[in-house]
Design a protein around this nucleic acid. Sequence first.
RNA 1: GUCGGCAUAGCUCAGUUGGUUAGAGUAUCACCUUGACAUGGUGGGGGUCCUUGGUUCGAAUCCAAGUGUCGACACCA
Length: 898
Amino acid sequence: MELASKYDPKEVESKWYEYWLDHKLFSSKPDNREPYTIVIPPPNVTGVLHMGHMLNNTIQDILVRRARMEGKNACWVPGTDHASIATEAKVVGKLAEQGIKKTDLTREQFLEHAWDWTREHGGIILKQLRKLGCSCDWDRTAFTMDETRSKGVIKVFVDLYRKGYIYRGVRMVNWDPKAQTALSDEEVVYKDEHSKLYYLKYYVAPEDQASIERKDEGNVMHKDEKGYYAVVATTRPETIMGDSAMCINPEDVKNTWLKGKHVIVPLVNRVIPVIEDGYVDIQFGTGCLKVTPAHDVNDHMLGLKHHLETIDIFNDDGTISEAAGLYVGQDRMDVRKQIAKDLTSAGLMEKIEDYDNKVGFSERTNVPIEPKLSTQWFLKMQHFADIALPPVMDDDIEFYPKKYKNTYRHWLENIKDWCISRQLWWGHRIPAYYFRTADGKRDFVVAETAEEALKLAQEKNASLTAADLEQESDCLDTWFSSWLWPISVFDGINHPDNAEIKYYYPTSDLVTGPDIIFFWVARMIMAGYEYRGQMPFKHVYFTGIVRDKLGRKMSKSLGNSPDPLKLIEQYGADGVRMGMMLSAPAGNDILFDESLCEQGRNFNNKIWNAFRLVQGWQTDDSLATPEANKQAVAWFTAKMKEVNAIMDDQFKTYRISEALMTVYRLFWDEFSSWYLEMVKPEYGKPIDTATYQATLHFFDDLLKMLHPFMPFITEELWQHLYDRKDGESIMKATLNIAAPNDDDKKLCDEMEQVKQVISGVRTIRNQKNIAPKKALKLQAVAANPYAAYDDIVKKMANVESVETVSDKSADASVFMVGTQEYAVPVGDLIDVKAEIEKQEKELQHLEGFLAGIQKKLANENFIAHAPEAVVARERKKQQDSEEKIAALKESLSHLKAK
RNA sequence: GUCGGCAUAGCUCAGUUGGUUAGAGUAUCACCUUGACAUGGUGGGGGUCCUUGGUUCGAAUCCAAGUGUCGACACCA
């Protein structure tokens, strides 16, 4: 068959993906083989593939394919996440485009729209993963909100409630005014902001003005024509409507004159007390703090302690509420600007300063978070922290890289209760049911179904009917379903003893980003131990963040994120996969550069052309195998063993990029540049059968070693290499390469020396500008330790003869391999001056080297303390360099005599 | 502010318990359009291993301090 000189991935890729699907090669069923399981970190159901997914899923596919070829029963479970906030926001946005407000719809109507949206956009990302070559068992595709998973989530909620870990209560939570829901602490990201610090005048109340007096020399008292006033510094002047006290530190000498007084909230004209609490930082601002219990965590605490009124001045959407009395209905951000102006014109603004602080933003909607008091559901976390910390610290679950153990420990040691309720509709509705008790009080029960709930409620009020029960409207945090993922994909929550969960759990490797170590990884570990009594995975491989080559995060606004599908189009999936992996050590950010995909594509082409070469060879059974070919085959056999062992180790330690580089060099340098050139027959001439067969065998093994990284081209060539039956695939092939022994090592070392001889001749050729076609003579001075390989040297260096001489030719240019001197007669081209220069430079280097060794060996302490082997090595080095120096000196004296 | 990571060739990184005057890929330069491949071949150049001090016979490697950088967490309104 005629193959094009350039590899074209397009049709090859779709052809083989279809083939793999048709033959169910990704599918896994429990059997008696060792299982290898990965669950995909489920992407957002309506998301599209970005570079982070490309990296993450490439790594997973490499691991899965490798495990499959190791003979394990590999199972990669795909699926998607309902992504409560993100998806609901998208649906709300889409409805808004059609002029529909969420508030105009019933819950059922809204969910109808949401499911439509999910059906329309859901799974696009999974289709995209197929383009990348991902070998997921698609029949197992799960969704966090499908029936099985939903049932499991509810079951877990009820279970945890009954165990006493879930409670409901009024707490200060992180409120997202855009999504209009509470968030967990993890969903708040703090960002540096350049903001302003406003200094506001709080006049002392009229009835207290007369009694103002200096209590301490250090008092800082403010007075103008309207009387005495205090100055409060705040970054949030719009919250003054919620002030219910002013607080000073009792130890603060600046403010003792304010003790026991009352002040007037500017503009609002409400009188509030001055309270004292050690919480206030004397150094900050004026030492006067406005207390807004409804809108700040610390103020809330002060409010509880000092029994202050709580005035909630915000509506759920971040506009000002009726309770504020001023600016009602306006947005908080607009009010901040407006109130600053109004305060200034009313003479109530002392000054405004620039100020840098950190502001919490919603991770999903990117709006500033509002601390808000509300009734929410929480999960007590201490128990879960207690079960999740030891296995990671003890390396039962291993993190790659290890540094994330610290991050993990820090979080678990400072764990706070998890706010699990969300004021959203798209998600798992909390299975709590409200009703009135016989004496009219509001109460609730928690149960998996409405029927069960009714039974429980009836125990408290026998007269209740189904219609009297009202289910909680909140739904659960998305991560409350994700944390069950490794169990729930095998239906292990609903049916804890089913054959699948018993076989596939615990999973083997988890590949994910460190940004969700708390959101997801830690919580899966918690759920794993709580519900299986066992770790959810044995190894966690943390990928880095994909950045552009300037080190910037990829983002839509910067426009520096390439479209993954376009990249695949351009370089082929194998090329892009390789581009991702070439620079992706675990945990390090990867600086993505398209030129890496180009390198990947070039490698594809190299493999392709190596195949074309071998495929084009004609064999002749009557040909005896030349000695040189026997040597080449023996050497490469040993080399394969050596490199395969290295790769094994790299995979075991999750050094996947290094493993790729290892096989890259094996194929390109050792196989293509050395081995194939050694055995390549002259143009138009046949090759002996034994060498040909050995070469095909090498190729077969090399393709297998490459397959996890580049599944498509390897399948294509593997199918061409021998006659394969329908249904056969490289995917199912196993790699059986023995470990290298001492003979193999010796053989490899020897060939390295021979390569140096060849390189030596080539260097002279280059230096003297001698055409590759012109045959040269090679002289081994005094001895030829690698005489057995002369044929290989002749072929590779285009040398017509290798002679052992006692005196080299006068017109020879020389080089050394180890302690052995070689000479290449170059006739007229000899430049004695240049030759002297070259050799003197070499001599200088060697003498420096020797001096260092001699110094070491002259050091009695070294001889006394260093291990014998090290001393012996130094002695050998000394001897070798002395020999080399002697040879060089002699050579130089001959040259100079001319 | 607390804790942690990192600093090696122009760039991206290896360097496995301390022991050759430190390696790879890529970029770069020179030569080569030979018959698998110019998406290629051959060869070359390129490093004060961040700084300073210490431990040691011996330090890129261990320790301390400093500088730079990245990250996690916590924050003063």
